[in-house]
Amino acid sequence: MGQGVLDIDDNNFESEILKADKPALLDFWAPWCGPCKAIAPVMDELQETYGDSIIFARCNVDNSPNAPAQYGIRAIPTIILFQNGNVVDQVVGAVPKSHIEGLVKKVL
């Protein structure tokens, strides 16, 4: 078990995601976004399964505009997989659980 889905903001984005010692799956979301709410439980479930090997995190774009702007995010939810500070892959929208799990498996 990991530590639950981690809350990321513009201040800790670099230390917790880019400089993390493990791959990180970061979900960019906002409270007004229905599809974001729909995938939140999926992130929780995947965290329970894979939380030991991968960091699961979410970033509220409403409070932290810099990180999403840096990655050209124009739609939420967008989930980006980071490894060693680089983008490995990303998905946009409320995509199936198996699709998100597919991302996770790329870095296991």
Binding site: C33, G34, I73, R74, A75, P77, Q90, G93
Partner: peptide, 17 residues
């Protein structure tokens, strides 16, 4: 171009424009 200008949710993404 999904997520690069193509969006399916005004309520979610209007703020980016």
């Amino acid at each position: 171009l999904v997520g690069r200008g193509v969006s399916y949710c005004v309520d979610c993404d209007a703020n980016f424009y």
